[in-house]
Each structure stands twice: as structure tokens, then as C-alpha cells.
């Protein structure tokens, strides 16, 4: 009996871990696409997190800022500091280069989606 219970518990833990790992890996790419789609109008970090959450893309807060920095370094985003508000804020916006890349990323993302859909349809006994 104890073996069965411990098996279930260990199984659940493992399932959670495996699921999380997959989700983190997939999300990394999707998040870049999400940010670059969102930022046609300039926004600051806190707003970006809220807006991504609103469309159903849950972002771990600490993850977004390094990602914004990477995208900015690759010149997909531009930024400027706004100091007139209650506290200084860094606003980000998608650059023209970012928009070009976005177009390509969307195509690539959609083709991946279609492929997964086909694979899902082929799963037997679904």
C-alpha cells in the first residue's frame, strides 16, 4: 500500500517537474514573440506584464526584464527613460527591424502550430 502511495506521489512530483521544464522551454520563444507583437505602442515593464497576462500569457516577473534587455541588445526593441512620472520608467517599443523579424517569427510559429495540430490529430485513440 505504502509503495503504491509513494509511487503516486513521486509520479506526481515528476510529472510536475517535467511539465514545468517543457513549459519554460516553450515559453521562452513565445514570450519574445508576444513582447514584440505587443510593443507597437511604447510601454514599460510593469504594463507589459499586465497586458501579457490579460491576453493569457502568464509571465514570471523576473523573466521579462532580462528578455527585454536581450531584445534591446539585438535591436528588436528601442527604449527611453521617462522621468516625469512618480518614478523613473523605461519605455520600450518595437523597432522597424523588430517588425520585420516579427513577421518571420509569426510565419515560423504558425507552421510549428500546424505541424503540432497534425501530430495531435494522428494520436491514436484520442
Amino acid at each position: 500500500m505504502i509503495y503504491i502511495i509513494s509511487d503516486i506521489i513521486i509520479g506526481d512530483l515528476l510529472m510536475g517537474k517535467v511539465f514545468e521544464k517543457f513549459e519554460t522551454e516553450v515559453k521562452r520563444g513565445v514570450l519574445q514573440l508576444g513582447v514584440i507583437c505587443l510593443l507597437d505602442k511604447e510601454q514599460y515593464g510593469y504594463e507589459i506584464i499586465k497586458n501579457l497576462n490579460n491576453v493569457g500569457l502568464k509571465v514570471e516577473e523576473g523573466t521579462l526584464y532580462p528578455l527585454l534587455r536581450r531584445l534591446e541588445k539585438d535591436e528588436l526593441l528601442s527604449s527611453h527613460w521617462e522621468t516625469s512620472g512618480p518614478r523613473p520608467r523605461k519605455y520600450y517599443k518595437t523597432t522597424d527591424f523588430g517588425k520585420e523579424i516579427r513577421f518571420k517569427w509569426l510565419i515560423s510559429y504558425k507552421s510549428i502550430n500546424t505541424a503540432v495540430k497534425r501530430l495531435e490529430d494522428n494520436i491514436q485513440g484520442k
Partner: peptide, 16 residues
């Protein structure tokens, strides 16, 4: 806590 562990966040930043 919601930000995630400092070490993990630090590791995600590009080196500049």
C-alpha cells in the same frame, strides 16, 4: 518572491 530567485534572474541577463 514573485520576481523569482535573484540568481536565476541574474543568469538570464546578457553579459554587457
Amino acid at each position: 518572491l514573485r520576481m523569482g530567485s535573484a540568481e536565476e534572474v541574474a543568469a538570464m541577463y546578457p553579459i554587457e
